[in-house]
Design a protein around this nucleic acid. Structure first.
Length: 864
RNA sequence: GCCGGGAUGGCGGAAUUGGCAGACGCGCUGGACUUAGGAUCCAGUGCCGCAAGGCGUGCAGGUUCGAGUCCUGUUCCCGGCACCA
């Protein structure tokens, strides 16, 4: 503040180029390399204050995997976040805007194999390069809080959390069927299987294997994860819907059907799950999944049945792997045995069918052909009885004559053929019958979820070692907290032949039991990398803490994240795991918030030539190349200008040229008009220009445009985030300056006003094109940091038009436009419109039925 | 099949509440400046038409003085889920 010295235009910008012309060329490389250097030499520039009287704002973009280079999707993501962070800084917030590296994962191992580089070295090298790119792009990160998940100072806390989860019974080990990617040679979580294929290898079908694995009991939180989605109204509806579907809560009942005849080792009860217990009197068979344990008993002494069941298993697995389980033709095999429906003691045949899933509900269903399409199809095929138990309208005999199947989802109707429940409305019958089942001891109301516990064991090297030991004497023994971190050894031979690479490192695998001092074997699987990203954003609040993952005080100051920004591809995986982790930490008393992020924004994909950018299609645009060719400002600005951030962006190099041209216009205007008015004079005349009365129309028009622009840009930030229109508005303002260059040169528009416009224009550009803005700011002789300069305020009175154009329609068709004072009332507008030559001519001799006048909008004359 | 999102000039896209469709940018056309122009500046540019005028927001209807916007039906494209009992 308070620097009244005159600013001269020659101070920075107008040296002469070699060909003798004044150098008002926009040289992005010169400007950007200069500022990038300055910014990097001042690490405190973007540092968040640990305590502040200002309100806090936590702006966060999803951290990248250090694959080697940034792609355009990153640039888009980070340009949005950076614009927001800078806007909040300028609005007086204490902003936390950190960045880090999600740096464990398989690509590092692949690189080790193909390029013979140790994963750690490969990863750290990539980080260096990507950090260079980020700095060159000018993103305003607080690097003092950088988090790198593959370093022991970070992953030790993964291990610590694992011990806590284990203590609370939320981490457990079980033998189970797991998804196995033969390319990754490791297990995948359910969330990492896409259409039966590996999320990393779209061409690779995931196999099922039986393995001992570590699981986290995310299902304990299933209900809360679902319920709290309702509270997340700052999240896109799409993400919430996807999570709801993923959790897949289903209310229903469990009912026990007794096996008729001798029982085997797996018991004498078939428990079925149903959401429509009200239709149970209509059950005409019981259907088991081919992998249901009881099927083994039923087929024990029946080789023919066993063979048929085995074929069903193979068929089902194949279909699942191919991702078209939903399309296979339903068929099955009768076991020859029966089960008893506890409600009416009906003896129902037990079938094994290919469409019954082993891992949903109980793997067994009651089949009600009259009221379920699938059951109907099956019953028709095998001529099983079809028994109607719901009629839509029992009082109307006409209506009761219906063809099965009734849509199963229909809740309308009354029960018939249902014993003591006859006459019940379906909706009422469900709770009543569940209650009855519970009283009688053969069932109960129950909820099932599609969500399964999170399998975190990975048979890979480059990940967090799971801190557990297997002692011959003491069994499963957790590594004591004081022995953390369990360091991931280096110099490990990595192959993709299967099995954990760490198991082949004796120095690692062979350990001593902390309980008995005897020999123990270390767990050699590592953790899923999604563990790393489940809590990394808390670490930013206290990144160098070596006593705990982070201090509660720091987390509670910054959390929840005010705005989280990233790709839709994380809608389920990362965003559900990290919600779970937050709830777990809350229950441990580490944090107070129930949810990690208040608001979530998912930006659209970038496509080129109609397809997602990919190496195989050869349509990848390299950020480095764009920066070298057009500069960082132009590259960033284009990603924001091409479309609104939530939509798919169709990349066009010509578009980048367009924004570069715009920045050139901004620069050249500034270079020509820099320093004509001192900052002090400017402050005084700013007051005068507010009065605006003495301004000539063209000056007033420029001033009006300025305030309209500030209004539009500010409102875009506060509302829809349609930065494409913000930037368009700024372009209009610049166009106005050019249109008025004559008036400016002649003095018809006062220099002070022009200087005011330029100053505010610079501030408006600051979130989007920080290099240009800083260069102009310096050119203006401003001493204060641009980042902390106050965001300009608009004056509604100055933004208001004095005269407005009113379209005049006849019978809804536009005929002309009349100009009226902005405040003109209905009568004035009507009169002006009807007096207009064109209108008068058009309506003469016709009968005016009515005239609609919408003040400030239009006139429509209805004539006959 | 279910749940989202979308369809607007030659192209990317604007149009915040039903009120001038096409802001802004690209491309294209013409002009100025220039030894030169793939730099810059100015003008024009939805379609048909010399013009007056007419037609135009995937398609078919409807409501309304007035519809890109609301309603009904329908087609296509993108994303997610999918024999979930």
């Amino acid at each position: 503040m308070g620097h009244d010295e005159n600013i001269t235009a020659t101070s920075t910008a107008s040296a002469s180029s070699s060909d003798g012309r004044p150098d008002d060329r926009y040289d992005a490389q010169r400007i950007e390399t200069k500022w990038a250097e300055r910014w990097q030499s001042d690490p405190s520039l973007y540092a968040a204050e640990p305590h502040s009287t200002k309100p806090k704002y936590y702006a966060l973009e999803m951290l990248p995997y250090p694959s080697g280079v940034l792609h355009m999707g990153h640039v888009r993501n980070y340009s949005i976040g950076d614009a927001l962070a800078r806007f909040m800084w300028m609005n007086g917030y204490n902003v936390l805007h950190p960045m880090g590296w999600d740096s464990f994962g398989l690509p590092a191992e692949n690189a080790a194999i193909s390029a013979n580089v140790p994963p750690r070295e490969w990863t750290l090298r990539n980080i260096t390069n990507m950090k260079r790119q980020m700095n060159r792009l000018g993103f305003a990160y607080d690097w003092s809080r950088e988090v790198t998940t593959c370093l022991p100072e970070y992953y030790r806390w993964n291990q610590w959390f694992f011990l806590k989860l284990y203590e609370k019974g939320l981490a457990y080990r079980k033998q189970s069927k797991v998804n196995w990617c033969p390319k990754c040679c490791t297990v995948l979580a359910n969330e990492q299987v896409v259409n039966g294929r590996c999320w990393r290898h779209e061409d690779t079908i995931v196999e099922q294997r039986e393995l001992e694995q570590w699981f986290l009991r995310i299902t304990d939180y299933a209900d809360e994860l679902l319920r709290d989605l309702d509270k997340l109204d700052g999240w896109p509806e799409k993400v919430r819907t996807m999570q709801r579907n993923w959790i897949g809560r289903s209310e229903g009942a469990l009912v026990d059907f007794k096996l008729d005849g001798p029982a085997g080792p797996n018991g004498s009860t078939i428990t079925v799950f149903t959401t429509r217990v009200d239709t149970i009197y209509g059950a005409t068979s019981v259907q088991l999944s081919p992998e249901h344990p009881l099927v083994r008993d039923l087929s024990a002494n029946n080789a023919e049945l066993r063979n048929k069941v085995d074929l069903l298993i193979v068929e089902q697995r194949k279909a699942k792997e191919a991702g078209d389980l939903g399309n296979i033709e339903k068929h099955g095999v009768a076991t020859g045995r029966y089960a008893i429906n506890p409600f009416n003691n009906a003896k129902l045949p037990i079938w094994v069918a290919n469409y019954i899933l082993a891992d949903y509900g109980t793997g067994a269903i009651m089949s009600v052909p009259a009221h379920d399409e699938r059951d109907y199809e099956f019953a028709k095929k095998y001529s099983l009885p079809i028994k109607l138990v719901i009629v839509p309208c029992p009082d109307d005999p006409e209506e009761t004559v219906i063809e099965p199947p009734l849509p199963f989802t229909t809740m309308k109707g009354s029960l018939v053929n249902s014993g003591k429940f006859n006459g019940f409305d379906c909706a009422d019958a469900i709770p009543a019958m569940s209650k009855y089942a519970e009283e009688q001891g053969f069932g109960k109301a129950a909820v099932t979820y599609r969500l399964k516990d999170w399998g975190i064991s990975r048979q890979r090297y480059w990940g967090t070692p799971i801190p557990m030991l297997y002692c011959e004497k003491d069994g499963l023994v957790p590594v004591p907290e004081k022995d953390l971190p369990v360091i991931l050894p280096e110099k490990v031979e990595i192959t993709l032949t299967g099995g954990s690479p760490l198991a082949r490192v004796p120095e690692f695998a062979e350990a001593i039991c902390p309980k008995c001092g005897g020999p123990a074997r270390r767990e050699t699987d590592t953790m899923d990398t999604f563990v790393d990203s489940s809590w990394y954003f808390y670490r930013y609040t206290d990144a160098h803490n070596d006593r705990e993952p982070f201090s509660s005080a720091a987390a509670n100051y910054w959390f929840p994240i005010d705005q989280y920004i990233g790709g839709i591809e994380h809608a389920i995986l990362h965003l559900i795991y990290s919600r779970f982790w937050t709830k777990f930490m809350r229950d441990m008393g580490m944090v107070k918030n129930d949810e990690p992020a208040e608001r979530l924004f998912t930006q659209g994909m970038i496509i080129k030539n109609g397809a997602k950018m990919s190496k195989s299609l050869g349509n990848v645009v390299s950020p480095d190349e764009m920066v070298a060719r057009y500069g960082a400002d132009s590259t960033r600005l284009y990603t924001l200008f091409a479309t609104s951030p939530d939509r798919e962006l169709d990349w066009q190099d010509e578009g980048v040229e367009g924004v570069q041209r715009f920045l050139g216009r901004v620069y050249r205007f500034a270079a020509r008009h820099a320093g004509k008015v001192s900052a002090g004079t400017l402050r005084e005349t700013a007051q005068e220009t507010v009065q605006a009365t003495s301004l000539r129309p063209e000056a007033r028009a420029l001033q009006r445009k300025l305030h309209q622009t500030i209004k539009r840009v500010t409102e875009d930030f506060e509302g829809r985030w349609h930065f494409n229109t913000s930037i368009a508005a700024i372009m209009e303002l610049v166009n106005k300056l050019y249109e008025q260059e004559q008036a400016i040169a002649s003095g018809a528009i006062p220099a002070a006003l022009v200087a005011d416009v330029q100053r505010k224009l610079t501030l408006l550009l600051a979130p989007f094109a920080p290099y240009m803005a800083n260069e102009l700011w310096e050119m203006r002789g401003e001493k204060e940091s641009l980042l902390r300069a106050a965001w300009p305020k608009y004056d509604s009175a100055l933004a208001k038009e004095e005269e407005i154009e009113i379209p005049v329609q006849i019978n809804g068709k536009l005929r002309t436009v009349v100009v009226v004072p902005a405040e003109a009332g209905e009568d004035v507008i009507r009169e002006t419109a009807l007096k207009d030559e064109k209108i008068a001519a058009a309506i003469s001799g016709k009968q005016i039925v009515k005239v609609i006048v919408v003040p400030k909008k239009l006139v429509n004359a209805v004539v006959r």
